[in-house]
Design a binder for these strands. Structure first.
Lengths: 265, 265
DNA sequence: ATCTCTATTTCGGGA
DNA sequence: TCCCGAAGTAGAGAT
């Protein structure tokens, strides 16, 4: 059960004390206040005064969120050291340093509105469906989805420095390299496939086909596929999801299914 | 100035009322509580019961954070509709729907520990230094950094569907296509350059050089560069940063510079 | 430790 | 609007 405390409108000394305690104990900290931010590392940035939410997670990750938008404006992934101190007459200073790559995130709070400090528990399992690797496995088990007579031989076959998703033989014993995309296939995906095919041709054979598998394709991708004499095939994610559900044991009933069954009302 | 309120240990009815008001007024909401989460859209996921921080931003973006890690476990970028209602005997249900792509995020709170609801202001300008486009501009202005006698002619020159960073002529009037990476150059960057060069050759000339500019290169990239007869050159980001600082008017003194000058103590 | 590739990538810019 | 490529991408998996 969560154990935490809330400080409202703390003076900076109390804020400092609370934040220091939280950091020492690897607690979660949510600091809401007015601050400046500077970052220097792989790049560098600065951000003027504004009201923000700063979250320091229990593993030391730091997030700075503005009132809008999905992305944090500044951040630090799980950091080795976070220090905090008072700068008399200016505010409360927080420095988060990451070692590899060496990066510095500095926050200067001029006002702190609220601090939440404590321990939160969350050990639930996170399950994600229909990742690319899952699609690859379904195609491997159901090779006719690619084309009749296709014989898949290897998943993640190393070719050069990379690995093609599926390698196999077609009904005429041509070598087939299959690159799979879970989202719309773009030029980048085509270039990836091209690289595998050229690499494989150089190494071994000449009768090599490259097939890009995706739910849809950008015009640029289709043009490039034609130019590079590569093939493509659309996959129907809905169909794959059904196959996936029928082939493996049903997961425990989810809230989502539950809600779907019951509806909202 | 921020205007907000904090509810501690609200019953679900009060929580519902506060969240509804916050949503109606496009306020920021931070909801800390115990919840289940299901997502369905481009992919699908489920997450069992655990203690989490849910942030609903003033533009409708939704973030669900676990106690650890940089990334939100579930989220919804700025959403069209968020609904919330009570499910008697079960908890408080929140549904965030995005239209393109169509995605559903459902959160069922079984307990709500704390809610923060209010308006926060942040109109400060965010400035980022040494983005790729900035590097491109510096090279364009200082072409000798690439090689003596290089004459840059065009930035972001369209070639096929993409655009090469810099196009120009070398001292022998060869066409030169320059692809710039701010981070370590990898195989993908080489393929990108290769694609531009081939496309340009087909279209026009034969004496076309392709040069990849990056602070460093992966072994795979170097191998591929050799194979495809493309060139590369290392750039020194520190040197570029100095050039950039001296060539353009100094930005206002930043907290970062200030701290550097003064030190921490 | 390094390299490669995925991601519910998100985001911004240009056609 | 779609498409393309950057990002302080982060994170996982393989070598």
């Amino acid at each position: 059960m969560a154990t935490y405390r809330i400080l409202e409108n703390p003076d900076l000394e109390s804020a400092l004390k609370t934040i220091k305690e939280g950091l020492m104990r690897n607690h979660l900290l949510i600091i809401i206040g007015e601050c400046y931010i500077d970052y220097e590392g792989r790049s560098a940035s600065k951000l003027g005064l504004g009201e923000r939410i700063v979250i320091i997670k229990q593993d030391g990750a730091v997030l700075v969120h503005r009132p809008k938008g999905y992305s944090p404006v500044n951040w630090q992934p799980s950091t080795t050291t976070i220090e905090v101190w008072l700068r008399s007459g200016e505010g409360l200073s927080l420095l988060a340093v990451r070692n590899r790559p060496r990066e510095y995130l500095r926050i200067l709070f001029t006002k702190i509105f609220t601090i939440i400090e404590g321990v939160f528990h969350d050990s639930a399992e996170f399950v994600m469906y229909l990742s690319e690797s899952e699609i690859r496995d379904i195609i491997f088990e159901n090779p006719d989805l690619l084309e009749p007579g296709f014989k898949p031989l290897e998943k993640e076959k190393r070719i050069g420095q990379g690995a093609v998703d599926i390698y196999g033989l077609d009904s005429n014993n041509n070598h087939v390299l299959v690159e799979i995309k879970r989202v719309m296939g773009d030029r980048e995906a085509v270039l990836q496939l091209y690289n595998y095919v050229e690499n494989y041709k150089n190494g071994v054979e000449n009768n090599v086909r490259g097939i890009l598998l995706a739910p849809s394709f950008t015009p640029g991708a289709l043009e490039l596929l034609a130019k590079l004499k590569l093939e493509f095939k659309e996959i129907d994610l809905r169909k794959l999801r059904l196959l996936s559900q029928s082939s493996k044991k049903k997961p425990n009933s989810t809230l989502f299914e539950y809600m779907n069954e019951k509806g909202r009302d």
